[in-house]
Design a binder for these strands. Structure first.
Lengths: 255, 255
DNA sequence: TCATTCGAACAGAAATAATGTTTGAATTGA
DNA sequence: TCAATTCAAACATTATTTCTGTTCGAATGA
């Protein structure tokens, strides 16, 4: 269940996306709360680096030309990501041992898995932290170096660790998915880890939101037909879905 | 502030320490709550590995004393721990690669190291998270399973990882320090990891606040003379300090 | 078998978090 | 500089969550 506060935060971001900026008073009016509440919201969102406050109101923190940093991606399209997370989690059985990728989509999956009885090996410190206070999840960490910003685990140690173990499933995310080039990743270190993960898991479940479609990263992870299931959101175009379904094992639209 | 539940958990453990074991009914009577509440407490404490339930009651898992949970320890003596943290950090050179123990003292060291140029291999997820937003620290994770509550990393994978690497220093914490028994730890898994860490680091720096003095845990980590330096706080008694200085390489009082 | 213990499901109580109000300080623009 | 506005601390009030007790059918063990 999403709390009133979370919905309101999404509302603030939505309004800012429409108009670029907004006053505290305006936000309070449109969302039906007092200015003080809006101020507290803005303070939190600014701490997350999602927006920038100015005297009287706030504006979005990033320009449209750069890819927004993690805290921002995490908040944007939170609803769609949550749906993907729930759908992916439904493909995991209690008792399974899984590898769980990092990124905002991986985190969405983690949030659903927190109350499940599963063994999780996260490929990101951020995802690991999401399980920290879970009493049901058996958390195991792969070794390796932590890449700043994304907090993903990579390097020879990570790959060695994966090769030394076996998992029921690998919940994979990627920078891009394309019919021609399959699943791809911008960061070469992360891609190497993902390739190793594909190799040590019985089955692969890909979780990619529609914004990744037809984007191609630098390094190929695996082909379209490798995952037993590809879970995406309802914004995926009908055309793309058809093409995917021709080549992939199973394509699931969450929501 | 300690919650009623925390006090009651301590009470359960205290009673068990007196008598070795106790019935659910007995615990409920003495602590002034219903049996259902005791059952829920026992379930949680069993999950933490502190005690073992049997039909009708529970007994201690080891014949052990039990430390207050992390959030409590973290707050207790926060100032003294910070001083210890600063002093320990001054013994680490820029560029060093170190292993950093978990626990509240380890976290205090981490908070000081956050802005330093060092490579850190933390033995706890909680300590790792403290470095997550550091741009100067090169963070590397050991593999292994994450123990609930403490979030420490342990098991064969952790030990394998440490044995496969080499470090300039190991910042060690412990459950107890005593002249006769050296450094000791309550949890056997953690102790095994600590022993391995001692073996792969050029030098060991022990960070132990005065409350650990003359307490003896279940498993021995190493002798008093192993660390190149023992850092403690000003509450350590003059007598204990003298005894320590006779046996240890170097004893430093922070503050 | 039969007394006892266990734990799920629900209800009420206690504790915590979120929001609104008031107020005086800080900021802005004329 | 002032006057108007915005800001945020402190407290009051309201929601929400967590905790505890109760009941009751299932599980346990002598």
């Amino acid at each position: 269940m999403t709390s009133a506060k979370q919905r309101r935060h999404q509302g603030v971001l939505e309004i800012l996306r429409e108009t670029g900026k907004a006053t505290v008073n305006e936000l309070g009016m449109r969302l039906g709360v007092t200015e003080m509440t809006i101020r507290r919201d803005l303070e939190m969102l600014e701490n997350d680096g999602v927006l920038q406050r100015f005297h009287g109101g706030a504006k979005l923190a990033f320009g449209s030309s750069y890819e927004p940093p993690f805290p921002v991606r995490e908040k944007i399209n939170a609803d769609r990501k949550r749906l993907i997370g729930e759908r992916v989690a439904s493909l995991i059985d209690d008792g399974d041992a899984i590898i769980l990728d990092g990124g905002s989509t991986g985190l969405a999956v983690a949030e659903v898995l927190v109350d499940r009885e599963v063994t999780v090996c996260p490929l990101s410190l951020r995802v690991a932290w999401a399980f920290a206070r879970s009493s049901t999840v058996n958390l195991i960490m792969p070794g390796g170096s932590v890449r700043p910003a994304e907090l993903s685990l990579s390097g020879a140690d990570t790959i060695d660790y994966l090769r030394g173990h076996h998992f029921d499933a690998y919940v994979m995310t990627a920078s891009g998915i394309s019919l021609q080039h399959g699943f791809t990743e911008w960061n070469a270190d992360d891609a190497a880890v993902k390739k190793a993960a594909v190799g040590v898991a019985d089955r692969v479940v890909a979780a990619v939101d529609s914004s990744k479609m037809n984007r191609v990263g630098f390094v190929k992870i695996c082909g379209i037909d490798v995952p037993a299931a590809i879970v995406t959101d309802a914004e995926m175009s009908a055309e793309d879905l058809n093409h995917l379904r021709n080549q992939a094992e199973d394509v699931i639209v969450a929501g």
